[in-house]
C-alpha cells in the first residue's frame, strides 16, 4: 500500500509539485477547520452554561423530539459514508460513480437540513422561539450554525458537481473535493457532540 500523504482522499500525483500543492492547501484547510472547531467549542460551553436558564419557558426535556434527532444523526452519518464512497470512486478515476455518490451525499445533506427545519418550525409553533429564553437562544444558535455549515457544504457539493462536469477530474477539482471531504466529515464530528450534549441528557430527565 502506498504511503498516504494526506487525510481524506488519497490522490496519486502525476507530478511532485502537485503533491506539494495538495499538501499546502490541505494543511491550510485543516488550520481553518480547527479554528472553526474552537468556535463550536465556545458555543458548546455557552450552551452548557445556559441549559438551566429557561426563564420560565419550556426546557429541553419538554421540547426535544429524540426520534427526529436520531433520524438526523443517521442521515448525517450515512452522508459521511457516501462521501467516502465518492472519494474512493474519485481515486479510481471513475468520474460517473464519483458524481453519483456526490449526488447521493447532497440529497442526504438536504434531507438533514429538511429534518432540522421541521424541528425548528415545530418548536416555534409551540411558542419556543430563540427570544423565549437564554436556553433557547443558545440552542437555536448552536444548531443553526451547524445547519449553516451543512448548507454551505451542500452548495459546495453543487459547485463541485458542476466543476466535475466542466473540467472532469482535473487536479484542482480533485484538490477541492479533498477539502470538501474534510469539511463534510467535520460536520458529522460536530454533530456527535451536539446529540451527546443537547439531546441525550434530556431524554432521561
Amino acid at each position: 500500500m502506498s504511503e498516504r500523504q494526506h487525510p481524506g482522499i488519497n490522490l496519486t500525483h502525476a507530478r511532485p509539485q502537485d503533491a506539494r500543492h495538495a499538501e499546502v492547501t490541505v494543511f491550510g484547510f485543516w488550520t481553518f477547520l480547527m479554528s472553526d472547531a474552537i468556535l463550536f467549542a465556545l458555543l458548546f460551553a455557552t450552551y452548557a452554561s445556559m441549559v438551566s436558564r429557561t426563564a420560565g419557558g419550556p426546557s429541553g426535556a419538554e421540547l426535544f423530539d429524540i426520534g427526529n434527532a436520531f433520524l438526523e444523526t443517521i442521515v448525517l452519518l450515512l452522508s459521511s459514508f457516501t462521501f467516502g464512497m465518492a472519494a474512493v470512486a474519485l481515486k479510481e478515476g471513475r468520474q460517473r460513480a464519483a458524481s453519483l455518490w456526490l449526488v447521493v451525499t447532497l440529497l442526504l445533506g438536504l434531507g438533514f437540513l429538511g429534518l432540522e427545519l421541521r424541528e425548528f418550525s415545530s418548536l416555534i409553533t409551540q411558542g419556543a422561539t430563540p427570544q423565549t429564553s437564554g436556553f433557547l437562544s443558545s440552542f437555536f444558535v448552536l444548531l443553526s450554525l451547524h445547519g449553516l455549515h451543512a448548507l454551505v457544504g451542500c452548495i459546495w457539493i453543487g459547485v463541485m458537481l458542476a466543476q466535475i462536469a466542466i473540467f472532469g477530474l482535473s487536479r484542482p477539482v480533485r484538490s477541492r473535493l479533498l477539502r470538501l471531504g474534510l469539511f463534510w466529515h467535520f460536520l458529522d464530528l460536530v454533530w456527535i457532540v451536539i446529540f451527546t450534549l443537547v439531546y441525550l441528557p434530556v431524554v432521561s430527565a
Binding site: 496519486t12 502525476a14 507530478r15 481515486k91 479510481e92 478515476g93 473540467f167 482535473s170 487536479r171 484542482p172
Partner: peptide, 10 residues
C-alpha cells in the same frame, strides 16, 4: 492548472 493524471491505472 488543469493537468490530468486522473486516468492513471489504479
Amino acid at each position: 492548472g488543469n493537468a490530468g493524471g486522473h486516468n492513471l491505472p489504479q
